[in-house]
Design a protein around this nucleic acid. Sequence first.
DNA 1: CTACCTGCAAACTCTTTGCAAGCAG
DNA 2: CTGCTTGCAAAGAGTTTGCAGGTAG
Lengths: 151, 151
Amino acid sequence: MRRECGKWGHRLRNHGFRSTFTREIILETLEATSEHLSPEDIYKKIKTYYSTIGLATVYRTLEILIELGLVNKLDFDDGRKRYELAENVSSKTHHHHLICISCRKIIDYSDFLNDEIEFLNKIEKKLEMKHNFKIQDHFIGFTGLCSVCLS
Amino acid sequence: MRRECGKWGHRLRNHGFRSTFTREIILETLEATSEHLSPEDIYKKIKTYYSTIGLATVYRTLEILIELGLVNKLDFDDGRKRYELAENVSSKTHHHHLICISCRKIIDYSDFLNDEIEFLNKIEKKLEMKHNFKIQDHFIGFTGLCSVCLS
DNA sequence: CTACCTGCAAACTCTTTGCAAGCAG
DNA sequence: CTGCTTGCAAAGAGTTTGCAGGTAG
C-alpha cells in the first residue's frame, strides 16, 4: 500500500526512516484521540479498516516515534504502557496527569503552568549542578480519587 | 519457621494480616538497601539464606505492603516494577528521582524541598477544586543524562 | 535494485493464579 | 483448630524477535 507523502513523511525521512502507510496511520490515530492509547488500543482501532496490520509493527513503530520525540510513553500502572503525541507536534498544550487509584481514570490538566514554570526554574539548574546531571524532561503527577470514586 | 513478633508485626496485625517470617524478611530487605529493588532482586537476595522462599510470595507480599502504605511502587521504564520503603517508615526523607535515559541509573534527591512544598501548596488545593479530585500523593521526577553518560 | 519495513508466529519476560501443605493466632 | 499464608508449577499478559515476503526511495 503506497502513499505519496503523508503529513508526517518529512519528519521520518529527516531522521533516516522511511515514510510508510503504517507509520502515518499510527501517528494519525494518536493525533485523532485525546485518550492515552496502549499498543493494543492502537492496533484494534487501525485493524477495523486496515485489517492486515500487525501488533508487532505497532510496537516497533512506537519505539521509533519515541526516538524521534514525536510520542511520549506513559505509565499509569495498569499493566500496559500508554502513548500520546508529544506536545510540540500536537494541538495539546503542556499538561500533566491526575490518576485515580480506584477506577484508573486519567485526567489531563494544564492548569497553573506559571506556578510550575516558576518552580522548575528555581530548582532545575541547581539540581543539575549538584548532581552533575543534564535534565532533558520532567514529569509531575498526582494520585488520588476522582469525583466518581469519592462518592 | 516461627518468629515471636518481628519489628513489623504490629503493623501487619493492625490491618488484619498475619506476621510471618517471609513478610518480615522482605521488609528488612527493603530497609537494608538504598537501591530500588525489583521483585526478582528481593527474591534473589533472600534466597541466599532462606532458600525455600518463592517468587510468587514476594509479589503477593509487596502487594500487601503497598496496601498498608509501607512500600512505594516505582516505574523507571526498565521493564520491571521497583519498590522502596515508604518514607514514613524508613530513615529516608522525602525524595524524588533523576533518571538517566542512557544507562538507567537512578539518583535520589532530597533537595529544594521548600520550593517543592511551596509549589504544591499553591496548586494542590486549586487542582482538587477545579477537577473535583482528592489528591493523596504526588510524584515528580526528571529524565536526562547522568555525569557518566554525558562524557 | 537494495536496504529497510512488514505481518505472522513463536519466543520471552514479568506477573498472577490454583492448589495442597504449612503455619499464625 | 481454622483460615490465612506459602511454595511450587502452570497459566496469563504484555512485549520482543526471527524470518520470508513486500516496498520506499
